[in-house]
Write a protein that binds this DNA or RNA. Structure first.
Lengths: 310, 310
DNA sequence: TCGATCATGCACTAATTCTGCAGGGTTATC
DNA sequence: GATAACCCTGCAGAATTAGTGCATGATCGA
């Protein structure tokens, strides 16, 4: 209901280049360029200035984008409450999430919604957390399941989003099957500190989790290799290159030469998985129901783990 | 920036029929029909139901319209503040007002703006107060100069509008040139109560002013004739059909056979002339400047009258 | 200086949106 | 109870708008 061009401007405000905005919104770069030019014409405001080979928001543009947060939230809220009041049906729902979330939480959600609301068009996009926020702003998705980041660009009080905790997913350690600890069920970080480690690149979410966990016990382990996908981590570990952390939600896919151990002791790294939505949209019955389903699935996973641990 | 279809829905909420909405917004009836159908499709809400030969808002529709007041106001405010912050220029300004206001206040304003902001496209629409509010909602105009109505559909606290008093325009009495009182400068309502009167139709603004003024002094004069335009009032009076009220702002146009007298005494009917804008838009520099010019013109008129009265 | 990166303008095309008219249903009038 | 008046809607066609893909120009880093 808010002009698509304003949404485009908001996406641009986040990624800074026309090209990235185009990729994120699904338009071509020329379309984005034309939209923003048109927006400036209609509003009679100069929102962009040339900056090197790119463009940059003017002060007015930044102001407008900042102020539009409340506008978007108000619209989302209005729509949501109207939906609830009128018992109406939303025609489309976009979901986003990173790989293991997409597999373990979003897929069941989509399946449930498919059966309970057959005429609802559900679209699931696998995307990393940062991109999920971008997609939320771009209105490509309505819900995102992400790993909460402690001090990232998106605080919990961001005026654009609202978040709900789904579950705390502990990180296990994976070791080669022929590793001395492989026969154990559990291990402590202290026991593992001297091993060669495989992590994600510095600056990534899991690297931060990794270092935070070890600094909590006063250790700084050696990072031997870096990988992005869990599949790669597992392969590296299986090849004996080192050991690594693996979230409980991430499956081993029956890798024969790798063993997963629970981490015990003082420091137990976990990742917090939350669901995020555009601020104001939580009142929508469809959003609410989806979050409830996600929450139920998360709880099912948690209780299954508890039973498993007994 | 707010979707045009929502604006259309808001206009429909005011006038109740597709045809009137079309006339007010400048679309054809089929376009309005299609827009509202499309709006319902996009939102997944049923906003309208058939009602006899027309259509009617559903509860959801009314809810959405009511809630959109705040949304529109917020957008207007955001745009206005961004305009002010960025020293930008609005490309278009729409002005509306009833006949004498259009002539005496809007025309000078438009002329001033033409010279101070040559590239601004100014459009003036003459329309009665009720229609002015409709046009404000339809975003055809941005400012309306109207007669404040004591207990009309638009209270001063309407969430859609904001109003500023421009001036209180006293009502004079006009009598035929051969009337016994024609040589006088002033008259009281008591002196005039027994005359045959010419007013607007019952229910109109001026009829209300008329009866309110006389009931204040405990009299109920006889209404002999009814007229809509001031021109007609003057012609009726000139023809000796009776006497009538005429706002100070409304010119006699050199009617030779009619004399204008000031009303003195306890009850002096006046009409309050105010300028109205969509709520939130007052912060816009252009709107603000326009109101200032209107106010200055109003004051000029008032001081000119004071000098004239000396 | 060369290549890479970005944005923008242009010609063309696709999609949307509007108009005018015809048609069907509903209310008021005689 | 026929008739007229009124109101909305659907459809074909037209006009406007919006998007794509490529070419161009401008800037930055190597």
């Amino acid at each position: 209901m808010i002009d698509a061009r304003l949404i485009t401007l908001r996406v641009f405000a986040r990624c800074g280049t026309i090209g990235a905005t185009a990729e994120l919104t699904g338009y071509s770069p020329s379309a984005v360029s034309a939209q923003l030019r048109e927006l400036q014409r209609v509003l009679g405001m100069q929102l962009l200035t040339k900056d090197g080979r790119g463009v940059r928001l003017t002060a007015t543009g930044r102001f407008l984008v900042a102020g539009s947060d409340a506008l978007i939230a108000q619209w989302e809220s209005l729509r949501a409450v109207a939906m609830e009041a009128g018992d109406q049906v939303q025609p489309r729902l976009g979901l986003g999430g990173f790989s293991s979330a997409a597999a373990q939480l979003l897929a069941p959600l989509a399946a449930t919604l498919r059966s309970t609301r057959p005429q609802l068009e559900v679209q699931v996009l696998e995307a990393d957390p940062a991109r999920c926020f971008d997609l939320l702003v771009a209105e490509r998705i309505d819900l995102a399941v992400i790993v909460a980041m402690q001090s990232d660009t998106y605080g919990e009080d961001d005026p654009r989003f609202e978040q709900r905790v789904l579950l705390d997913d502990p990180l296990d350690v994976i070791v080669p099957a022929d590793h001395p600890l492989a026969s154990r069920e559990t291990a402590t970080l202290e026991e593992l500190a001297s091993e060669p480690w495989i992590t994600e690149a510095a600056g990534s979410t899991y690297h931060s989790l990794f270092t935070a966990a070890f600094t909590a016990v006063g250790l700084t382990p050696r990072i031997a290799h870096e990988a992005v996908e869990w599949e790669t981590h597992i392969a590296f570990v299986g090849a004996g290159l080192g050991i690594g952390l693996l979230p409980r939600l991430a499956p081993l896919h029956g890798a024969e030469n790798v063993v997963r151990l629970r981490i015990t002791g003082k420091a137990r790294p976990t990742r917090r998985i939350v669901v995020a939505a555009r601020r104001g949209s939580l009142a929508s019955p469809l959003i609410q129901e989806s979050i409830d389903i996600l929450q139920a699935n998360a709880n099912r996973i948690l209780t299954a783990r508890l039973e498993e641990d007994l």
